[in-house]
Simulated assay, not measured.
Amino acid sequence: MNSQLVLDALCMRLSAALEVLHRLDEPTRERLFGGNWRLMWGMRNRIAHGYLLMDPAIILRTVAIDVPGIVTAIRTELDDPPSASD
């Protein structure tokens, strides 16, 4: 399979996932991602407005290192959401 095709698909999936996370209310995003959210959204903007210029190493590193932590944070939130009194 063409590696550029795979990279393009990864970029589009990352962008779509970040779009969905952007719909969360700000306190939830802050709780889940802290100061990383601005960087995450910045990556989405780079992908959405010129992903052909993205460094493939950054995308691959993001998928390998950062995405698993994001998935874990979301799963933890879904399994044990904060109570109304938190």
Rank of each mutant, 00 (worst) to 15 (best):
Val20Asp: 14
His22Val: 00
Leu60Ala: 13
Val71Pro: 12
Leu14Asn: 04
Leu60Asn: 11
Asn45Thr: 14
Asn45Asp: 10
Trp41Met: 07
Arg61Val: 04
Leu78Asp: 01
Asp79Gly: 15
Gln4Pro: 06
Ile65Lys: 06
Thr76Pro: 09
Ile47Asn: 06
Leu5Trp: 05
Ala48Met: 10
Glu30Cys: 09
Asn2Met: 06
Arg46Glu: 11
Gly50Val: 10
Met40Asn: 03
Ala57Thr: 08
Arg44Ser: 11
Leu7Ala: 03
Leu21Gly: 02
Asp25Arg: 10
Thr76Glu: 14
Trp37Ser: 12
Gln4His: 04
Asn2His: 13
Met43Lys: 01
Asp8Gln: 13
Pro27Leu: 01
Leu39Met: 08
Met43His: 09
Leu10Arg: 14
Asn2Trp: 13
Ser85Lys: 05
Leu60Lys: 13
Leu21Pro: 00
Tyr51Asp: 15
Thr28Asp: 11
Val67Tyr: 04
Tyr51Ala: 15
Arg61His: 11
Arg44Cys: 09
Asp79Ala: 15
Ile58Arg: 05
Leu60Phe: 11
Gly69Asn: 08
His49Arg: 03
Pro81Lys: 04
Ile58Ser: 05
Leu21Tyr: 08
Arg46Asp: 11
Ala16Val: 01
Thr62Cys: 13
Ala9Trp: 08
Gly69Pro: 05
Asp66Ser: 14
Ala16Gly: 05
Ile47Thr: 04
His22Tyr: 06
Leu5Val: 13
Phe33Glu: 03
Leu21Phe: 04
Val63Trp: 02
Asp66Lys: 08
Arg29Val: 00
Thr76Met: 15
Glu77Ile: 00
Thr28Pro: 02
Gly34Leu: 01
Asp55Leu: 14
